[in-house]
Design a protein around this nucleic acid. Structure first.
Lengths: 160, 160
DNA sequence: ATATAGTTGACTAAATCATTCGGGAATAGT
DNA sequence: ACTATTCCCGAATGATTTAGTCAACTATAT
């Protein structure tokens, strides 16, 4: 489970499609203009999204892309996994052949954190992000649900 | 808020320090051997971790690194932000100068998802990951707390 | 027919990742 | 003082990823 600008571009684009898809397919040129993402890059991303069954394509004039499933059933994790195929970074190739003294702690740590983040991103749906976005467009203050208060103290800057 | 192997190396290494730091400073060579991360790479990462006040260093024989704060007060977000300084990927440079028609939706979407993920990673502490790791070492089954059930359905593979 | 729009593949500059190397500076033990 | 240990720093490097361009193609609505 990686999380880079690439995956975010894909999520952004998917939200755009979800928000503008009510009156027929959404063209990539429209997404490109609204989200300021290069058309060819979008083509690459939507190629993967389509092959993973997240969007349906309609060719020809009036064509474009539609969500293949309801926005409620598409998670951020789905989108990211589609465009950003995960890598195995555990040296031991996922196998348990690395049990020198305490059974490859690296492997355990990785999969542990992976599972945490994956579980979380899997729980965030496109529909949720769309709702949040529509609220903001109406000038409302978006209240983020806290998932596990209280947060630990920190002296770090809060810019993410 | 990026999330790459680099940040994960840093988190892994920090957990290692947290788990082995009870009897004095932990050397990077030890971390390197246990976690199979190159020593020089660790030096780069710990340089940043130190400059961000997450670890203290002790030079000379018997030296090494200690956590600068308690593991309960260090979040995954802290560690990742330290080694992986965040980029601004909103075209408009964070300013609101991009209000052509609907005030730079890209900007809103980005910061929205950023905030979601950041809020989550900020709520996961090193101490928590250490506890999970120690449980696994004892052969226990780690039960992951669900943060927002129910998860959306998905036809995607679940390998992360 | 023609214009629209998806589909595919090759290619590229720039950035990032992960590592290696070489040399320093501080300190504990002798 | 000497030496081994360990942190500290910067430069260089190959591999990969990012983000984008270009070109040719197929399907389809008018």
């Amino acid at each position: 489970m990686r999380l880079t600008t690439k995956g975010r571009f894909a999520v952004t684009a998917m939200i755009d499609v979800a928000m503008h898809g009510e009156h027929g397919p959404v063209t990539l040129s429209a997404v490109s203009e609204r989200q300021k993402i290069s058309l060819s890059y979008l083509e690459q991303l939507f190629g993967k999204l389509r092959r993973h069954g997240l969007v349906d394509s309609v060719r020809g004039p009036g064509g474009g892309y539609n969500l293949a499933r309801g926005a409620e059933t598409v998670s951020v994790a789905d989108v990211i996994l589609a465009v950003d195929e995960p890598i195995d970074a555990t040296q031991c190739g996922g196998l348990e052949n690395c049990l020198d003294d305490h059974r490859c702690m690296t492997h355990e740590l990785w999969s542990g954190l992976n599972a945490h983040i994956f579980t979380y991103l899997r729980s965030v749906t496109l529909a949720e992000l769309v709702r949040q976005q529509e609220s903001r467009a109406r000038g409302e203050t978006v209240v983020m649900r806290d998932h596990r208060p209280p947060s630990p103290r920190s002296t770090e800057p809060v810019t993410a």
